[in-house]
Design a protein around this nucleic acid. Structure first.
Lengths: 334, 334
DNA sequence: CTGAAAGCGCTAACAT
DNA sequence: ATGTTAGCGCTTTCAG
């Protein structure tokens, strides 16, 4: 394999000239650049990435840290959408992305190892593995990082840089849309109070719809089913159910089907999380779509900015949800 | 940050002794190793990964190449399960995993770039992006690689190293299980003839059940639904439907529910792909589980072997499916 | 068992 | 505009 030396000899210039020509320095003449590049191409020269990384003192890479246990991709495909989005924007900026499993209990050690050994320039960390310890370390060490998903415990994450969807706004968007269509009575099928995402969506909904009925349970199809049956048996059947997530939505859908309640006429439904399944449902679901791929894209971009400008002050960034109207809702007049 | 030099000075030895001590050479005395490690720990010394990578002429890393377009994680969570599995076994062997998007049209260029620039030691390639060109290049260049999922076109992949689940065997396993339970009449709800996975599963089923009725369509919930209705209206209702994948299974389930046909009494159902949804279904589905995480684990291990022993002859490797009996089938007597 | 020294291939500051 | 040169921090012969 040809090295920069070989190219230099062949082109009759010094190795630094070759380096500059290939890395696009302004101080080399157009002609020379063309000449050198041609020779390099002829010789099949590709700079040795290991040597570049070493000489530049930068790996041009980031690590995505999160739990990658068995079944994660099935249970939480959203996370991998974010990863895909992050990979895309990082690649565009010349960075590559490592994937590394870790759990909250050892994240601090792992993150420190990566930084101390300089095996990556920045960290993308899934909110689920954030700890207070890590938060302190990252902040103290002024380590380029972005947390994806808002850290759940404010005491742990108040100094971290994070990016998240605005779930409260998503709730508002859903509620406003329903009000516009003329809906008056709604039920919110959500998770328990500890489910931060569900709670945020609920609070958004409540900002617009004051006295909405709230049902709670686990975020599972089973509990969704139970809630669906429960709300059908309410003395006055609500016009629409707002489901905090897809599992609950599927469960409700099952319940309605089992009771032969048609959608959207018998009851309407709005969900969050635009999992493609929402599209396949019959009828396709109206959802407030949170673009998790785009969240990943933004996270990647932000991280690169932080790597390049360590003093940068961006602390948080929120992406905006959009409503996708489909068949599970309709105009109910005024 | 302390370097090896600092540690050497502090420990009163040479840098090569420090290097050997830390990398566990036999030629350094126990005592010396302990002493040096202690000092290194005190100083918070971590070897610079960039320098190690450079000096060792190896990155100790692999790249997973596949299409990471928007929605991939939703449509194909299986791939990310494989990735997670691969990450796990690679990490265990001291390798880290890059994730890189690519499409079939440019994979050859990308793979060549990675190898020529030496930015990774091996390649994990998803079958969906394999091309004939790539196949030739990988083979010629004797480049450490594993294809996950059997390359679809034999002319493209006959010289590649691949790992895949034995889908034909999975079909046999399903059929044998049903025969054991006493089922006599079955329908196979599958994809079109071009769907390699579906076809393999079907051929396995046919090895055991000679004249099974075969329904075909797109692998979608919609077509599954259609097939479900179709098979209910068959002159003689089959005892069980074998669904080639989850989309079709969900569709069938919908159809049965809409016609108030109970499962497994009215009709039984067996699916493949052990997506956790199969567990949440009501009743939970009997499936032939293909452990995609484990496939990833094996792929990672194999790749490391190939990296370490370039001459190694493993060309293909097949993982074995297992049957998970749940509520959607039952004993039908003899 | 330990140390000296020669790289690894490239970048970047500095000199010309 | 181009070349000279000093690293980058570690691994790894090879000599002692």
């Amino acid at each position: 394999m040809a090295t920069i030396k070989d190219v230099a000899r062949e082109a009759g210039v010094s190795i630094s000239t070759v380096s500059k020509a290939i890395n696009g320095s302004y101080t080399i003449s157009e002609e020379q650049i063309k000449h050198i590049k041609k020779i390099a191409a002829q010789m099949g020269y590709k700079p040795n990435a290991r040597a570049q990384t070493f000489a530049r003192k930068s790996t041009r890479s980031a690590v995505f840290l999160s739990c990658l246990d068995r079944n994660t991709a099935f249970v939480n495909p959203h996370m991998f959408e974010m990863i895909s989005g992050a990979e895309s924007s990082l690649r565009e900026k010349g960075y590559s992305l490592f994937l590394q499993h870790c759990e909250a209990k050892d994240i601090c050690h792992i993150a420190k190892g990566i930084i101390d050994s300089k095996s990556a320039d920045g960290l993308l960390i899934h909110a689920s593995v954030i700890t207070r310890e890590l938060s302190i370390m990252l902040t103290r060490g002024n380590i380029p990082h972005i947390v994806i998903g808002k850290p759940e415990k404010p005491e742990a994450g108040n100094s971290l840089c994070w990016i998240d969807n605005n779930n409260c706004l998503a709730g508002e968007v859903a509620a406003r849309y329903l009000l516009e269509l003329g809906y008056k009575t709604a039920v919110f099928a959500g998770g328990y109070e500890t489910d931060k995402i569900s709670e945020d969506r609920l609070s958004g909904v409540q900002n617009e719809m004051k006295d909405i009925v709230v049902l709670r349970g686990e975020s599972s199809i089973g509990d969704g089913n139970r809630m669906g049956l429960e709300l059908l048996s309410l003395p006055e059947r609500p016009q629409v159910v707002i489901c905090a997530n897809n599992h609950l939505a599927y469960g409700c859908l099952q319940a309605f089907r089992s009771k032969n309640v048609s959608i959207p006429d018998g009851i309407s439904l709005v969900a969050f999380d635009d999992h493609p399944f929402a599209l396949f449902m019959n009828p396709p679901l109206t959802t407030v779509s949170i673009d998790v791929y785009e969240m990943g894209v933004q996270a990647g971009k932000l991280l690169v900015s932080k790597i390049r400008k360590p003093g940068m002050q961006v602390q948080s960034f929120t992406t905006v949800p959009t409503l996708v109207a489909r068949g599970s809702t309709h105009n109910v007049g005024t």
